[in-house]
Amino acid sequence: MAMNDLERLVSLQDLDLMIQEADEVAKLGFAMTGYAELQKAREELAMQIRKPLLSRYERLRAKLKRAIVPVKNDICLGCFLRQPTSLAARGREDEQIFTCENCGRMLYWLD
């Protein structure tokens, strides 16, 4: 699928969470045979993201665990602060990446 920057970041974090939780999920009884393959897919995806954006993602992840979070009903699901209406309208439409003024996480509008 053709993805924009925001979607690539979403996929990257989905992958990172999967890698991070792989051990816990394995303990529940799921077979984990493709760990190395998944790591490779992660590196390949990261290479497709612009350097400054990737660094920002890595910094936020190191500091806040989740670098990018969903926004629903204009609420940042990282810190539960309501986003200003002006930002919400643009966040839905623009390709630009917006951050939550309160927690600093990058935002992905769900609705």
């Binding site: 992958l15 969470l17 009884g29 077979a31 045979t33 393959e37």
Partner: peptide
Amino acid sequence: QRETLGSTGIGKGVAIPHGRTVA
């Protein structure tokens, strides 16, 4: 990607595809 990590088909005719997503 989750299926790459390992099949979620756990046997006995059952599959539990799963994952976290920002979406």
